[in-house]
């Protein structure tokens, strides 16, 4: 009976989504908002990547909310998992191949992560994507050696400073009589590394915050005691 109702629910959901999809104008030109942004964004923000102009320039407050959601989720996960007992058993270290590979990967991932963050206004990528790679850089060695202690204080410090920096840049715009999080500084030449005003700085703050947060979250998940 329960399976039957579940199947009915799934079929109804599929029908509902198909009806929505059938009413879409498939492959149409961008809608009014998208079209206006495509036309205006390069001149208004100076960022070659228009998705970055949308995420940080036009919807900056949304991005602040998004960071807050990620922060709340990692806070709640840490709260739910709790602190580890010192005498709880740990997984054994992995073999030499994995440990040395993890050490080799660490600087590589760090460079790639910062590259993606700093080029977020020029190429596909940005603070969130690069931040995840930074988190992976710190998490891979931890997977190879589960006994390594994680510097949670340092991670919290980076995370807090990066979040404060993001809000501070927004407030600076407010003090100059502009809207909160409105891009400041010189827009520079389109397509150069130093361009688009404060957008790269905002993405750097986002990247550091996301990286520190995810690294702490993954360390918490990997560190939790699973013996019932």
């Amino acid at each position: 009976m329960r399976n039957l109702t579940s199947l009915l629910f799934a079929a109804g959901l599929a029908f509902f989504l198909l009806v929505i999809a059938a009413r879409f104008d498939l492959g149409a030109a961008p809608m009014l908002v998208g079209d206006a942004i495509l036309q205006e964004a390069p001149a208004e923000t100076g960022a070659a990547n228009i998705v970055t102009s949308v995420v940080l320039g036009y919807r900056g407050i949304d991005t602040l909310g998004e960071i807050a959601i990620l922060f709340t989720a990692s806070l709640a996960a840490g709260l739910v998992l709790g602190r580890r007992r010192p005498e709880a058993s740990r997984d054994a270290d992995s073999g030499a191949v994995l440990q040395i590979s993890a050490q080799l990967l660490f600087p590589l991932l760090l460079v790639v992560g910062f590259y993606i963050i700093l080029h977020g206004h020029l190429t596909p990528g940005g603070g969130f994507q690069g931040g995840v790679i930074l988190a992976a850089a710190f998490f891979v060695p931890l997977l190879a050696r589960p006994g390594t202690s994680v510097n949670h204080t340092g991670l919290s410090l980076v995370e807090g400073l990066a979040g404060a920096g993001f809000i501070l840049i927004g407030l600076l715009a407010l003090f100059q009589g502009k809207a909160f999080l409105q891009p400041l500084l010189d827009k520079g030449t389109l397509g150069m590394l130093v361009s688009a005003g404060t957008l790269p700085l905002l993405y750097l703050a986002v990247g550091l915050k996301v990286g520190a947060e995810l690294a702490g979250l993954l360390a918490n998940l990997a560190d939790s005691e699973v013996d019932p």
Binding site: M31, V33, G34, I37, V51, V54, E66, F128, V210
Partner: peptide, 13 residues
């Protein structure tokens, strides 16, 4: 259209 892509970036995170 860049707007859905920015939305999906938010949704993934």
């Amino acid at each position: 259209d860049p707007v859905p892509q920015a939305m999906v970036l938010t949704a993934i995170v």
